[in-house]
Design a protein around this nucleic acid. Structure first.
Lengths: 403, 403
DNA sequence: TTAGTTAGTTCCATAGCCAAACAAATGCGG
DNA sequence: CCGCATTTGTTTGGCTATGGAACTAACTAA
C-alpha cells in the first residue's frame, strides 16, 4: 500500500511517477550494475514502464548506461549504474573546535573531506556561520569546477534542533535559539539549493541507515559517544524526530539516583556514568575539550597494556552503557544499536560487558533480535549523514530538474 | 509526496485511487457532515475527482448522503456522513480473568460491549481460544442479524506479540509461543474476515490515536497501568512496533539499582516502583489478581479521605512514574504521554508529582511540548483499539468489496 | 543457417486525475 | 415576478502514466 507518511495527502500521477522513479533509483543503487530487465523482474514494474522510468533518470543524469553483458544466452543486457558525476550533496558538521565539510556523489562516494579548525564557543553562532559559509562556498566552487550540481547542504549540530531547523540549545557551542539554516542561507546569498540543519546524532543514524553495514535494518538506533551522549532513531525506515524534533535525548536517562553528579545537576545520568567523560574524569581530569581525541588515544594505549585502573573504568562504563541500551532496546526494539563517536576506539573493552548487561535486561525473547554493534563510519558519520539527508530527498522522488 | 511506508514498493493507479479514497473517508469522518465541495476545497482534490470518489464510497456504503443545506446563497449542498450501518469491526481483549469483546461501526460508535469472566491462567491458550471463538461467534451473529458485514477482528493480548501475530510470552496468562491468530481463525472456520493479534498497549495507543482527545497528535505514547507496565508508541501517525514487534516494553526500565526487588528478579524496575502493585503490596499484600479493581477502589477511597500512608505511597509512585516518563519523553519527544489502566482512577494523586519529576528531567526546552495526560477511554481502551486496528486497514485504502 | 533465449521498444487500451464548461438549485435586488 | 449572482455538483475532454502484447534486436547453440 501507498501511504503518505504524514497525514492524509491526496495523490495524483506525478506522485506515482515520483514513487516509481525513486523505486528504480534505489534499486539501482543497491543492485548496480543491473539491467532494465532485472529492475522489471525484481520490482514488479512492467518492462515498458521501467524503460520509460530509466530513460527519464538517464535524461536527468542520475543513471548511466555502462557496457553490455556478454557470453550469455540471449540478447546481452545493457547495464545501468548510478551516475555519480553530475551531482554532489554537501554535509557540514560543526563542533566546538572544528568544522568538517564532506561532499558525496549520488553513490555516497566521498568527493572531498575538509576539516577546518575553528575557535568556536565564543558568542553565538555568528562566527560559525561566517566560517561555514566560507567553507561551503569553497566546496561549492570546487564542485562547480568538477561540473557538479550541488543538490543541497545540511549542517549537523550537536544540540537540540527543532523541526523547523532552529538550533534551540547547543550546550557545547553555547548557542540558543539560532536560526542557523536561515542565517547560512542568507550568508550564501541565494545558493540555489536547500540548506537544512539537524541534530548530529540524527544525521549519523541516517548515515548508518544509508551507508552502514546494517543498511537493510529498518529500525536502528545510533548512539554518539562524545562528552555528551545522544541518539538518532530510525524506525520503519525513517528518522523519527518526535513532535518537535527533540527525540533521542538519551544522555540524561537516569540510571542510578545514587550515582555521580552529572553536569545537568542530577545524579547517575547515562552521560555521567557512560559518557567518555566518565573515564577521562579519572584518567585526565584537567584535559580540555579539544584534547579529547588525544586523551582517548591514551586510554586506548593503557587498555592495550592492560592497565588495571583503565580496564576497570572501561568495564564499568560498558556495564552502564549496556543498561542504557537495554532501555532503548526494550522501548524501541530496533534490529541494531550502533555505537559511534569515541565508543568506537574503546569498543573492544566495552561491547562485551555492555552486551551482557543489555541482553540480561531485554525482556523480549532472544533480546528481541537487537544487536549491539560498533560504527564503521568513523568520526565523520554526522557529516556523512548530513550529506545523506540531501540524497534522501532525491531518493524520495524530489529529483533535480531535467538538464 | 507518496511514500510507501515500508520499503520501496512501486505504485500504480490503483494506489492513487486507494490513497484518495482513504483521504476522502478520513476527511468525512473528521468533518461530517460535509459536502463534496467542502472536501474538494479542503483536500485540494478536484471537484470531479471528489464526486467520483464519493460515488465509489457510497456504492460501497461507506458514506451516505443526508439532507441538503438550506437558507444559503447558491445551490444547497448535499451533505455526506459516514454510513456506519452496514459494517462492524470487532475487538477482543483477553485478560487473566475475563474476556471483553466490543464491536464498533465505522464511526467508532460502540455497538456492543460484552464482558465474560473466564478462568484463564490454566494451561496455554487452548481454553482461551475456545472461549474467544464462542464469544466472537455470538458477536458476529449479532452483527449479521443487524445486517452488518464484519470487516475484521483483532485480539489484544497482554504480552509480547511478534510482527507475525505470534504471542511469544504473556506472563500473566502463562502463554508462550502461541499462534493465537492461526488458532482462532481455525476455530472460527473460515470467518471471511482477517483475524489479527497485537499487544494490548499498542492497541490502546491506537485507540487513543484514533478516538481520544489527542487524536491529532502524530506522536503519542500510551502507558498501561496494570500490574505490569507497558507502552504503545505512535510516531509520525503510525504505531511503531520495532523490528520484531516488541517495542514499548517499558516495565523493566531500571530506575533505581537499589530499589525494591521486581518480579523479574532485578531491582527498581519501573513496574516495581511505579506499577500499581507497588501500592497494593503495602495496602493489600494478599490480594488476588482478580480483586485488583476492588483494591484500587479501596486505595482511591483512602486517598479521598486523605489517608497519610496511601497519599505517601501515591506520591512516591507518581514521582517514580514521572522519572520513567521523562525517559520516554527524552527519547521519543511525543506530543503527549497518556496514562491508562489503573493510573486513571489514581490520576488525581499521581499526575501532579509525576509531571513535576518529568518536566524537571526533560532536556528539551519547554519539556519538548510533551504533556502528561490521563486516558479518557477507560479500561476498554485495548479492546476499542483492537477494533480501531481493523478500521485502520479500511482507512489506509483496503476498502471492503463493492456490494 | 536455424532455433531458442533474453532484452528492450513500440503500440494500444485503460485508469484516473485535472480543468473547464455546464447544469441545477437557491437567494437577492429591482 | 424576473433576471442575476452564487454555489454545488456533473459532464466532457485532455493528459499522464501504467500494463499487456506484439515486435525488433542481439546473442548462443547446434
Amino acid at each position: 500500500m501507498i501511504t503518505s507518511h504524514n497525514g492524509p495527502q491526496p495523490a495524483d500521477f506525478t506522485d506515482v511517477r515520483a514513487t516509481n522513479l525513486a523505486v528504480v533509483l534505489r534499486f539501482v543503487r543497491e543492485n548496480a550494475p543491473c539491467s532494465r530487465a532485472d529492475i522489471a523482474a525484481s520490482t514488479g514494474l512492467n518492462k515498458a514502464t521501467v524503460s520509460s522510468l530509466v530513460a527519464d533518470l538517464i535524461d536527468r543524469r542520475l543513471l548511466r548506461e555502462t557496457g553490455l553483458t556478454e557470453h550469455r544466452v540471449g540478447r546481452p543486457a545493457t547495464m545501468l549504474v548510478l551516475d555519480g558525476s553530475p551531482y554532489a550533496a554537501i554535509g557540514i558538521e560543526v563542533n566546538v573546535d572544528y568544522i568538517t565539510a564532506v561532499a558525496v556523489d549520488l553513490k555516497g562516494e566521498e568527493l572531498l573531506n575538509w576539516r577546518r579548525s575553528f575557535p568556536g564557543g565564543t558568542s553565538g553562532p555568528g562566527q560559525a556561520v561566517v566560517a561555514m559559509a566560507a567553507l561551503a562556498r569553497r566546496v561549492v566552487s570546487r564542485m562547480t569546477k568538477e561540473a557538479r550540481q550541488v543538490l543541497g547542504l545540511t549542517v549537523a549540530v550537536p544540540g537540540l534542533v527543532d523541526v523547523d531547523g532552529i538550533v534551540r540549545v547547543a550546550p557545547n557551542l553555547g548557542w540558543r535559539d539560532a536560526d542557523l539554516a536561515g542565517d547560512l542561507t542568507k550568508a550564501l546569498r541565494d545558493p540555489g539549493f536547500p540548506v537544512l540543519v539537524d541534530n548530529d546524532a540524527n544525521l549519523a543514524a541516517l548515515a548508518e541507515h544509508r551507508f552502514g553495514p546494517h543498511r537493510n535494518a529498518a529500525n536502528l538506533v545510533y548512539v554518539t559517544g562524545e562528552v555528551g551522549v545522544g541518539a538518532g532513531i530510525v524506525l520503519d525506515g525513517r528518522l523519527r524526530r518526535g513532535g518537535q524534533g527533540y527525540s533521542g535525548e538519551i544522555g540524561h536517562l537516569e540510571l542510578d539516583p545514587a550515582g555521580p553528579v552529572c553536569r545537568c545537576g542530577r545524579r547517575g545520568c547515562l552521560e555521567a556514568v557512560a559518557g567518555v567523560g566518565a573515564i577521562l574524569a579519572h584518567t585526565a581530569p584537567d584535559a580540555s575539550p579539544s584534547d579529547l581525541e588525544l586523551e582517548i588515544d591514551e586510554v586506548v594505549r593503557r587498555a592495550r597494556n592492560e592497565d588495571r585502573e583503565v580496564l576497570g573504568l572501561l568495564e564499568n562504563l560498558g556495564r552502564h552503557l549496556g543498561r542504557g541500551m537495554a532501555a532503548v532496546a526494550n522501548l524501541l526494539n530496533p534490529e541494531v544499536v550502533i555505537l559511534g563517536g569515541y565508543y568506537v576506539p574503546l569498543a573492544p573493552w566495552l561491547v562485551g560487558c555492555a552486551e551482557e548487561e543489555m541482553y540480561g535486561r531485554v525482556l523480549a525473547p532472544g533480546g528481541g533480535g537487537c544487536r549491539l554493534e560498533v560504527s564503521t563510519l568513523g568520526y565523520g558519520a554526522a557529516a556523512l549523514g548530513a550529506a545523506a539527508r540531501v540524497l534522501d530527498s532525491v531518493d524520495s522522488g524530489r529529483l533535480p530538474a531535467q538538464r
